[in-house]
Simulated assay, not measured.
Amino acid sequence: MPKSITTSPSRSNRERTETTRLALIDAARALFVSKGYGETSTPEIAVAAGITRGALYHHFVDKRDLFRQVLVREAEAVAADIEAATPGQLTPREALLEGSKAYLNAMSAPGRTRLLLIEGPAVLGLEEIMAIDEATSANSLRQGLEKARLGKGEVSLDALARLLSAAFDRAALEIDAGADAKEIHSAMRWLLEQALGPEPRRKPFA
């Protein structure tokens, strides 16, 4: 006779808590994209998520806190796409080029550019947005630059990473505004290749 599988009360409670939290984040994201942060109210979010307003404030301090969590999840999704596109067998140069393409593709998810690059800085402030960015995709870029030894001591690696990150953000905004995505991708690849310099020649087989 097979043993019955029981779920501990604590695990069940954790699962319910996480399910409710994700439902709130999903509902909030949809409303923030369609209406904007300022025009979205917490009662609307609670109704859309199918929970009470009191439950919302049990999981999040306020609307701003919920908005921040929406942005963190978006930024983490972008970083995950970059990581998936840059497996370990790639050279540092290949990883940077593939990662840049993955970033722009990830930012094309509906509403993501508006959330991370327009609403985010306006609501949370530039310092907090930069902190989120540094912990996710900007960190991936800096690590890629370091592995490629870009600059080779001639320039500040941190400054270079910030400037290139800003260029990628502007590219995402251009695409979101209706610019030709292929042209923007090509321009960003060219820019990164100029920073990388000539590709090293492969040594011939002996």
Rank of each mutant, 00 (worst) to 15 (best):
T6N: 15
T52I: 04
P110G: 14
L145V: 05
D176Y: 02
S34L: 07
L116V: 00
V61F: 01
V70I: 00
T20Q: 11
A187Y: 09
D62N: 14
I5Q: 12
R162A: 07
Y37A: 04
A179H: 12
E94P: 01
S8W: 07
A179C: 12
I45L: 06
A122R: 09
T17N: 08
A95W: 00
S41E: 02
A166N: 14
R114L: 06
I25W: 09
I118E: 13
S186R: 08
A109E: 11
D26K: 03
A138Y: 13
A109S: 11
R14Y: 04
L71Q: 03
K147A: 12
N105Y: 05
D26Y: 13
L24T: 02
E98T: 01
A167W: 03
A106N: 06
P92N: 10
L126G: 08
L141M: 13
G178Y: 02
P110T: 06
G151S: 03
F205A: 12
R21F: 07
M130F: 09
R16C: 04
L126V: 12
Q69T: 08
L104N: 01
A171K: 03
L97G: 02
I118Q: 15
S140Y: 15
E183D: 11
E76D: 06
A109Y: 05
L90Y: 04
A206K: 14
A171D: 13
R114S: 08
A172N: 02
A138Q: 14
L163T: 14
R114H: 06
A84R: 15
D81G: 11
N13Q: 13
V61T: 08
G151L: 00
T20V: 12
Q143N: 15
L116E: 00
Y37L: 07
P92T: 02
E18M: 02
E128Y: 04
R162L: 06
A80H: 10
A179M: 12
T17Q: 08
A206G: 11
R112K: 06
L164Y: 08
E128G: 06
S12H: 12
D62R: 06
V61P: 01
G99I: 00
G88L: 05
A131D: 13
D26G: 10
R93Y: 02
R93V: 02
R149F: 03
E119Q: 15
P200E: 15
V78W: 00
L56G: 05
T42N: 05
T113Y: 05
P9D: 14
N139P: 00
L126N: 12
G153S: 06
